[in-house]
């Protein structure tokens, strides 16, 4: 009897898959490996050392950019997640209203519009605002990052809301809970995993954004990624590798946690 179709038994599939994995991960592995290089080159191995981590740690510019990146990621993730929860509630928990589809599309707009277009438009708008108000703080970056982080925070929250049994909220209001109390005591406790996942995704997305940040930032507002971009124009040392590896570690930890939360609490 003929066996069913099995991808693993098709000739060539294994080779293609291996090729993809190598293309994806080899550069990253090399990057991580050379962050431990004792020499000054990012291509010639001269032995193991923590030297570049120490050097990055002591670099005031790196320190400054890291702190800025973290503040920026934390605040825009908070703003984006709050907005995303409200948007998700409005698109899943209300009677269908006119323009709902339009709003859904607008919420997800950052996923569709090319980043460079958003970046240029923001540059123009903020330039005008700057010239009127004179404000040059981190606010512009927080606003910009919040905006493009919203869809990433929105998706897990919405998925969670859609998977939730509506009759629970009805039972809450049946037992004399006002809409606000029902949200607090019934909806929110079950929504937490979605919210947390959304916030973490937003955090990671903000943390490694280059294009929009580069266009929107004022002078002296380097984040880690834009600082690294700047460094590339000068001498490249494994210090860049060390910083990248640290960033990579943060992202991997957060994304892993995201999957973990989504899995265990479902």
């Amino acid at each position: 009897m003929r066996k069913g179709f099995d991808v693993r038994r098709q000739p060539g599939f294994t080779a293609i898959a291996m090729g993809c994995f190598i293309l994806l991960y080899l550069p990253i592995i090399l990057l991580v490996a050379y962050s431990f290089n004792a020499g000054e080159s990012i291509a010639i191995w001269e032995g193991f050392s923590w030297r570049w981590y120490a050097s990055a740690w002591e670099n005031e510019q790196v320190k400054d950019a890291t702190i800025r990146s973290l503040i920026l990621a934390a605040s825009s993730s908070a703003v984006a997640t709050t907005a995303a929860v409200l948007a998700a509630l409005a698109t899943t928990r209300s009677k269908p209203w006119r323009g709902q589809t339009v709003v859904f599309a607008m919420v997800n707009q950052p996923l569709m519009v090319p980043e460079i277009v958003t970046a240029v438009s923001l540059l123009i708008v903020f330039a005008v605002v700057k010239s009127f108000t004179g404000y040059t703080g981190l606010g512009y970056l927080i606003l910009a990052h919040s905006a493009f982080c919203i869809p990433f925070a929105y998706m897990p929250v919405r998925a969670r809301l859609q998977g939730m049994d509506l009759s629970l909220e009805q039972a809450g209001s049946d037992l004399y809970g006002t809409p606000l109390q029902v949200f607090r005591h019934i909806t929110l406790p079950q929504l937490w995993p979605g919210i947390l996942a959304g916030a973490m995704l937003a955090f990671v997305i903000s943390l490694d954004d280059v294009v929009i940040t580069e266009f929107v930032k004022s002078a002296g507002q380097d984040t880690l990624p834009t600082y690294m971009l700047g460094q590339l124009r000068r001498v490249v040392t494994p210090e860049i590798n060390a910083i990248s590896t640290a960033l990579l570690a943060i992202s991997v930890i957060m994304v892993t946690a995201f999957f973990f939360i989504n899995k265990t609490r479902k």
């Binding site: 049994d165 009759s167 629970l168 009805q170 039972a171 049946d174 037992l175 019934i186 079950q190």
Partner: peptide, 11 residues
């Protein structure tokens, strides 16, 4: 008050 057909207990 309602006893729901699907119980609807708060998990």
């Amino acid at each position: 008050n309602t006893v729901f057909q699907s119980y609807a207990l708060f998990p």
